[in-house]
Simulated assay, not measured.
Amino acid sequence: MSFDELLYRAKAGDMDAKAEIFAMYRPLLIKYSLVNRRFDEDLYQELAAELMKCIRYFRDAE
């Protein structure tokens, strides 16, 4: 399945699609959750919530 299709399914509420996108971006979320080489759980949660928000508000090109 292409990323576009996965994104549309996630936006429509498909929890499996959301989980797959989250799994794809998890390494990046972890990378940007490091502050002074230490993992910041609160920052990770904020970034994860922002990712889910981006999926919800994604507007497709018309």
Rank of each mutant, 00 (worst) to 15 (best):
M15E: 15
A17V: 02
I21A: 00
A12D: 11
E50A: 08
R9Q: 13
R26K: 15
K31D: 07
L6M: 11
R37K: 06
D42W: 10
L43R: 15
A48T: 00
Y25D: 02
Y8W: 14
Y44H: 14
E46A: 03
R56Q: 11
Y8K: 15
G13H: 14
R59W: 00
M1W: 11
Y8R: 15
V35N: 08
A12E: 13
A61T: 07
G13K: 13
E20I: 06
F3I: 03
K11C: 01
A19N: 12
A12S: 03
D16R: 15
D40M: 01
M1G: 09
F58H: 11
I21W: 11
E62L: 12
Q45R: 15
R38Q: 06
Y57H: 13
P27Y: 13
V35H: 12
R59A: 02
M24Q: 10
Y32I: 00
E5H: 05
D40N: 08
Y8H: 15
K18S: 08
N36L: 01
D42H: 13
E50L: 08
E46C: 02
M15Q: 15
M24L: 12
D14T: 01
I21L: 10
L7H: 08
L47S: 05
A12Y: 03
A10R: 14
G13Y: 12
R26Y: 11
E20G: 05
I30G: 02
E46I: 04
D14M: 13
S2H: 12
F22M: 05
E50T: 01
A12N: 09
L34K: 12
Y8D: 08
L51R: 12
R37E: 06
A19M: 13
Y57R: 15
K31Y: 09
L51Y: 06
F58R: 14
D4Y: 14
I55V: 03
F3S: 07
F22G: 04
E20A: 04
Y57S: 05
M52T: 00
D14I: 02
Y32K: 09
G13D: 11
K31T: 03
Y25G: 04
Q45F: 03
R56P: 03
F22Q: 10
D60L: 10
D60G: 06
L6S: 07
Y44F: 12
D60C: 06
R38N: 07
F58V: 00
I30Y: 08
L7Y: 09
Q45Y: 09
L51T: 01
D40K: 09
P27N: 10
Y25V: 04
Q45I: 06
R26Q: 10
E46Y: 04
K18I: 06
F3M: 14
P27L: 08
Q45P: 03
D40F: 01
F22L: 05
R38F: 03
K31V: 07
F58E: 06
L7G: 01
N36H: 07
F39E: 05
F39M: 00
L34M: 11
A49P: 04
F3A: 13
E5C: 02
D14H: 10
S2Y: 12
C54R: 15
N36Y: 08
E46H: 09
E5W: 06
I21F: 04
S33V: 06
F22I: 00
A48K: 13
A23E: 02
D16T: 05
F22K: 14
L7P: 06
R37A: 05
V35P: 04
S33R: 08
P27R: 10
K18V: 04
A10S: 09
L29M: 12
Q45N: 07
A48R: 11
A49F: 00
